[in-house]
Design a protein around this nucleic acid. Sequence first.
DNA 1: CGAACAGTTGATCGGAATCAAGCACTGTGG
DNA 2: CCACAGTGCTTGATTCCGATCAACTGTTCG
Lengths: 243, 243
Amino acid sequence: MPYNHRSNSRATEIRQPACRQCEIYQDSLCAVVSDDEIARIESIATHVNLRPGRVLFDEGDKRRFVYIVVAGVMRLVKLLTNGRRQITGFLFPGDHLGMAAHNTYSCIAEAVTEVHLCRFRTAKLEALIDDLPDLGRRLFGRVYDELAAAQGQITLLGRKNSTEKLTSFLLLMSERNVKRGLPPSPVTLPMHRADIADYLGLTKETVSRTFSQLKEEGILSLPSDYTVVLENSDLLEKLTGET
Amino acid sequence: MPYNHRSNSRATEIRQPACRQCEIYQDSLCAVVSDDEIARIESIATHVNLRPGRVLFDEGDKRRFVYIVVAGVMRLVKLLTNGRRQITGFLFPGDHLGMAAHNTYSCIAEAVTEVHLCRFRTAKLEALIDDLPDLGRRLFGRVYDELAAAQGQITLLGRKNSTEKLTSFLLLMSERNVKRGLPPSPVTLPMHRADIADYLGLTKETVSRTFSQLKEEGILSLPSDYTVVLENSDLLEKLTGET
DNA sequence: CGAACAGTTGATCGGAATCAAGCACTGTGG
DNA sequence: CCACAGTGCTTGATTCCGATCAACTGTTCG
């Protein structure tokens, strides 16, 4: 399994719900200012760990919990007939999952790597949101960001070719690095080729071929299967098909 | 132009902002209970009309206004190099557009038909949302619905073939009918074949061929280019590729 | 060691795109 | 009034990109 050698030690340990010490709390919903607010969030939080590949919830399950990813990576999956699979998103530390207007989950949530989650009872969190307007506003902003990201993904899937899809994906991952204060390259891919394929609407063979082609052209190099060095970001950006 | 013969008379007339008399207010954000709330919404609303094809705002424009569709249909568009175009969504009466976490619009908004919109200054609406928790909650629910719809569209674009795409689209339009209290069939398509193609990630030729094939198989009939009669909904549903 | 798994590479196939022509309807001007 | 240009839809012929099928490599783990 990729990535886990890096996250194993931290993700498996059950952390006491000490939000102030949590390394992601500034980037997440829990980025609150007052001690009172954080205490109230803390009081309703419990914790969950997941091994790679494990299902957190299924499409259609009763929506009892909302989660925040503390460590590791999750994937959201939709299934079609013939075993076709679409990954609608990857979730990284600070991202939340399980919020919705309906009382069932709209897709499957699975662990890509070893994962550590913060868990909230839906009703309790929603009550807290009603009580803490700042929390609601932050959640609001998040959801709109997700919606904008979804529009980007729709455009990618509907109109981009395989090279444009993969380069767009790599740039997105690189930008994630920068947001976390890391250098844009190298990019560490926590997921397998098949997951990248199911995210980009391709097959793992095409993903592999496109990687090889970009390597051939000197645009990137692959020190390992899960580490991508962006050798020419300018050229990479030109290949995304975006205006 | 399709559809306009039906909406012309109503959509072109400038309506006084009398929310209680507005035929979509029960289905929209403005579905409030108290007279005070509706009065406050009314007080910040102005009105806009658009001819088919006109651009309401461009991607990257400063986000000054939020809109609600009162009559007609809008499309949200993203452009790529080579003039490629992806429609990320169609907006019908009761739908809103222009809400976001950022201060620029994330895509182009254009009128498909003659359109009548309610318009709100971003800052004023956001202040009102802070003031009226019910309004915020309703908006919240809407956005989550949009997110779930986007996940469906992602799955459609990533993994469905042309027949599955078109049948899924027609069923979606049929369900819209039912929600508005209309019979599931016939479905009136307000947009051209090229718009359907750019929504489904196909070409207009493929859309046309797929319509012909479904007609051939007796699954639907086309009294006109813009009217689809679903002759066999059960079979149509089986063709969507969904589990 | 060998089975299982992930990734790569090669050969072939097929579905949708592309290129092109024709049809139906609409609106316009001589 | 009718010729004709413009627009949108359909249908046909061909092409091409990515899927599929298959073989092989390298790594991990029991």
